[in-house]
Design a protein around this nucleic acid. Structure first.
Lengths: 356, 356
DNA sequence: CATAGTATCGTAAACGTTTACGGAGCGTGT
DNA sequence: ACACGCTCCGTAAACGTTTACGATACTATG
C-alpha cells in the first residue's frame, strides 16, 4: 500500500490528517478533548487546525452524533401581539447565550412567518432535526405546541406559562404580582375605578395579568367591572384606543394600568386631546421598561426588571431538562416567575381629593 | 393488515422503504420530485410520508448535498442596537421569508452575542456550514466581514451599505434623500441652523446620513458647522442627550433632525424642561416609523416606508447572487436604495418669523 | 426475432464526522 | 519468560441522505 502523493484534494478532517500524518481518528479525538491522546500531539493538532482554519463540518458531526449543538428560540412576531418585541427578544437572547456559550451551544432564532401556522412551522423544524432543543415564546393559554414537543421527545422550555402541558418548564415575568402592586398603589392613592389593558390575542400573559388584577380588587373589596378590562394592541395605537374606550365609559375610571409601556404615548395623546392631563386628572401605570418610561411626559410609573437575567434563568431551566446537561444543573426549579421592581414616576403621583 | 391505531414515528427513509416495500432510492426520488418515478408510486410515497410524519433528516441531506436550505440573517444586537431595533428586524424578516418560502428556504436569525467579536462569530458560523447564504446587517463603514464571506465563497447580501467590498450586493434605506428632503423642508420654513443626530457607533448609515445632510446644506448655500452634528445613542436617552447638547450651543439651532424617531421622546422631555416647546420654538424631524410618531405630542414629522417590502427586495438580491437560484432572478439590480415617504406632522409645522 | 428505446426502479457509493474496537509499544510485577 | 496493564493511535463502521449507474420489463421498430 503506497500512501504516496495526493491524487485529489481532500477536504475536511482528512486533509488535516494528511497534513499532519496522523489518522483522522486521532485528529477527531484531539479536537474534541478526548482523554486517550498524547498532549503533545493534541497541541500539534490544535495548532494546525487553527492555522488551516479547520472547523468540523456540522452536518457530518450532527449525522454521526445525532446532535446539532444548536438551540432554537421560536418567535412568532405576529402582527397582533406585541409590535415592539425586538428588543425584548434580543435582550433575553443575550442572557440565554451567556449560558449556552459555556457549553458550546449556539442559539438561533426561528421566526415563524406571519402566514404560516405556528404549529405546522414548529412541526417542520422539529422534523428536520435542525436543533437539539427548543424555547417557545408567546405562549398561548392553550398551546398545542407543547404536546407536539412532548410527543417528539425534544427538550424544551418556554418563555411564558401556559395552561397546556401543565408540567412544562418555563420562566415568566411575574404578571400576577405586578398587577397586584399596581392596584395596591393606586388604591392607596384613593382610586377605586381602575381600568386595565390586556392584549387582543390569546397570549397567556394577558389572562395572568387580568387574573392578578382581579384578585387584587377582591382583596380591597372593590367590585369587579368587566367593562374596565380593555383589549387593545400593545402599541402606541393600542394606547390611543384604550383612552378612547375610557372616555366612552359613563363612570369614567380614574386610573389605568397598561400592559405595555409604549402604549402610554398613544394614551397620553388621546386623553390630552380631551383636555385630560395624565398624572393630574388620570393616573397611569405601565408595565416593563423603566428606562424608556422615564422620558415620557409625565414620567411613567412602571416596573423594571432585567430581561437579560431572565434569559439566564431560562437557559438554565432548559439545560436542566436536557439529558446531556441536567447533571450540571441538578436541582433547578423548572418553573420560575421573575419579579419586577416598581419604579415610581409622575404619571400616578397625585392623590384623589375624595380620598381621606 | 392490522393498523394498530397509532403509527409510531419513523426513524428514517429505510423504515419508510420497508413499510412500502420500495427501495430507498425511489423513495428519495419520489419525495424530491425527480422525473424518473412512476406517478402512481409517487402518490403512494407521499401519502405514506404524510401519514407517518416522515421528513428528511437535515443533517443527512446536508452532508450529501453540501447544502442546507437555510439562510442566515446575522444580527449583532449590540447594546446600542438592542435599544432601538424595535420591530425593525422582525418586519424585514417577514419580507425576506415571503420570498424564501417560495423556494423552500428557511430563514434563521443568528444573534451575535454582545461579548463576542462579530467577525469571529461569523467565521464560526461560516465554517460550520450551517447556512447556505448569509445576510449581514448593521454594516460598518469598513466591515471586515465582507472580505471573510467573499473569501469563503459564501453567497451573501447586506442590509445596509458599506465602504468595504464595494461591489457587494445590498439593499438599504435611502438615508441620503431623507436627509436631503428633511433639510429642504426645514429651509423652506426659514431655518438655517439645523442640527442632526448620528449614531455613536461606526455603523455606516450614520455616515451616509451625515453626508446627505451636508450636501443638502451645500445646495442651499448654508455653511456647514460640525458642532451641529451630534452623536448620540438611538434611544430615548439619546434624544435627551441631543437636546442637552443643543441647549449648550451658543448660537442655538432652530431645528433638529433625528435619525431615530423614538429619540423624540427624550428630546421633547428635555427641551420642555428648558421651557422650549417642540413644534413652536424648535422644529423636529424624525426618521422612520410614521405610525408611531403620529402619537407623539406634537406629532412628529417623519418618513415612512415599508420594511416588509425592503425585505422582499433584499431576498431577491440575495437569491440573484446564489448560483442555484440566479436564473430565476436574471437582471436584478444588486445594489438598491429604498425610498421613504415624508409624513408631515406638527413638530415642524411653524415658520420662522425672521424668514421672508 | 433481434434490436433499440423508454419508463421505472434497485444498488451502492459517496458526503464528513465520531467512536467502538483492537493493536502496538512499553513498563512492571511475579 | 510471562502475564498484565497502561498509553496512545489506526481502522473501519456507522449516521441518513442523494444520485450515478446499471438492471429490468415493456414497447416500438426493423
Amino acid at each position: 500500500m503506497v500512501d504516496g502523493g495526493k491524487p485529489r484534494p481532500m477536504k475536511g478532517i482528512r486533509q488535516l490528517a494528511e497534513h499532519l500524518d496522523i489518522s483522522i481518528g486521532t485528529i477527531s479525538r484531539a479536537l474534541n478533548g478526548k482523554p486517550d491522546v498524547n498532549e503533545e500531539t493534541r497541541k500539534r493538532v490544535l495548532a494546525a487546525a487553527e492555522q488551516l482554519g479547520y472547523v468540523a463540518n456540522q452536518s457530518g458531526r450532527s449525522l454521526r452524533q445525532g446532535t446539532t449543538n444548536v438551540i432554537g428560540l421560536m418567535i412568532q412576531s405576529s402582527k397582533e401581539t406585541v409590535e415592539n418585541s425586538d428588543n425584548f427578544f434580543l435582550t433575553v437572547t443575550g442572557g440565554l447565550q451567556s449560558v449556552f456559550s459555556r457549553h458550546n451551544l449556539d442559539l438561533i432564532m426561528l421566526p415563524c412567518p406571519h402566514d404560516e401556522d405556528p404549529y405546522e412551522y414548529l412541526k417542520r423544524m422539529v422534523a428536520r432535526r435542525i436543533v437539539d432543543a427548543l424555547i417557545l415564546s408567546e405562549t398561548q393559554r392553550v398551546d398545542k405546541r407543547f404536546d407536539l414537543l412532548a410527543k417528539a421527545k425534544i427538550p424544551f422550555a418556554a418563555l411564558g406559562r401556559s395552561l397546556s402541558g401543565v408540567q412544562h418548564p418555563w420562566a415568566d415575568l411575574d404578571f400576577d404580582s405586578v398587577a397586584n402592586s399596581a392596584v395596591d398603589r393606586l388604591v392607596a392613592r384613593g382610586h377605586r375605578r381602575i381600568a386595565i389593558s390586556v392584549p387582543t390575542s390569546d397570549i397567556n400573559l394577558g389572562f395572568v395579568f387580568a387574573e392578578g388584577y382581579r384578585h387584587a380588587l377582591e382583596r380591597h373589596g372593590i367590585p369587579y367591572d368587566p367593562a374596565l378590562i380593555i383589549r387593545a394592541k400593545s402599541s402606541e395605537q393600542g394606547g390611543y384606543q384604550v383612552a378612547d374606550e375610557l372616555l366612552r365609559l359613563e363612570d369614567r375610571p380614574t386610573a389605568v394600568i397598561l400592559i405595555y409601556e409604549l402604549m402610554a404615548i398613544g394614551l397620553y395623546r388621546r386623553v390630552m386631546e380631551a383636555g385630560i392631563i395624565p398624572g393630574r386628572d388620570i393616573a397611569v401605570v405601565g408595565f416593563r421598561e423603566a428606562p424608556r418610561a422615564k422620558f415620557l411626559q409625565p414620567a411613567l410609573t412602571c416596573f423594571r426588571t432585567s430581561l437579560h437575567d431572565l434569559g439566564v434563568e431560562l437557559a438554565e431551566i432548559l439545560l436542566s431538562s436536557m439529558p446531556a446537561y441536567n447533571h450540571l444543573y441538578p436541582d433547578t426549579n423548572r418553573q420560575r416567575t421573575w419579579s419586577l421592581e416598581l419604579v415610581p414616576g409622575e404619571s400616578d403621583a397625585f392623590y384623589l381629593p375624595s380620598s381621606k
